[in-house]
Amino acid sequence: MMDTLALRVAERDLLSPTLLRLRLTSANANKLPSVTPGSHLVLDLPVKDGARRNAYSITQAGKGGTFYEIIVRHSPTSRGGSAFVHKELTVDSILNASCPSNFLALESTAKKILLIGGGVGVTPLLALARARMERGETLEFHQFCTPEEKPVFESLLAPFGQGVACVHAGRNALDFQTLFRRQPLGTYIYTCGPNAMMERVLTEATAMGWPERRIHQESFGAGGGNPFTVTLARTGGTIPVAEDQTLLDALESADVPITSLCRGGACGMCRTPVLAGTPEHRDHFLSADEKASGRWIMPCVSRAHGACLTLDL
C-alpha cells in the first residue's frame, strides 16, 4: 500500500559534531514527489540488529522534485538509527524511504505564524519559515538551544533576518507570556522540540485564551510508539508489536482474523475486547467512557501503556 522511494545521498554536511545535514536525491533519476512545507520522510535504516524506521522532517525540497534536505541529530541515547545515519551513510549511499507525509501543514488563512523550536526541532520549522518568506508573508521565529550550539542555529536562521528570527541559549531566555501577548489576532503557533517545551507552549498559550486549533505541534502523525506484546486469550499465542507497526498490522501478519475498514480509528470495524493490560487509545470511535473503561481497543491506531496487552481473540 505504501509507496517506497529509493534515495541517494547526494551531499553530506556536518553542521556541528552532532548535527548532520543530508541532501537526498532520487536513486533512479525520477522526480521526487512534491511536498508541502512541514512534511517528513520515514527512512528505512538497516542497522546491525535489524531495521529502524525513523521520521525526519524535510527542511527544504528542491523545485521540481530534485532533492529533499534533512538534518539528523546524533543522539547518545539513540537505539542506532541516528548513529547509523552519522557513521554509515556516505555520499552515494542508497536507502529506502516511505513517501512523505505532512502533519504540520501551513494554513492559508494565517495572518502571521509564530515558530517556536527547541534543538533539532528546528527542522520542520525551517521549511515552514522559508515558504512564508518566499510568499512575502509574516512570520516570527524563536529557536532554543544550548549556548555551545548558538552559532550553528544562528546560521540556520540567518536567511530570515534579524528581528524575524532569534536564537535563545537556555530555556528561560524568553518569556512566553510577553511573546504571546504581543501577537496580532490571526497568528498561528507552530512548535517542534522536546515534549516539555511543546507542552509549555500549549499550556501557556491556551491559558491566555489562544485557540487550540491554532497551535500546531509536530507529532509525525504519532503512528508508532513503544513496542509491546499482545497475548491472544483464545488461542494462547503471543505476538510482538514493533515500534513502527500498528497492532492491526501485527495481528494481520500473524494471520489473526480481524475485520477492518478505515485503518484510521474512525469506522469502528476493528473494535476488539481487552482482557488485561491498559490500552493507549488513539481512535475517534470509542466514547470517553468506553476509553476509560479500558475494555475495548481499536487496533488500527491504538497501542498499549506498558509492555503487554491481552485481547479476547
Binding site: 500500500m1 509507496d3 478505515c262 474512525a266
Partner: peptide, 17 residues
Amino acid sequence: FDRALQYLLKLQVGRPV
C-alpha cells in the same frame, strides 16, 4: 461527521480513501 472529519484531517498524500 466528527469521526469522519478527524480521520480526513490526517489524510496523507498517496493514500486516497
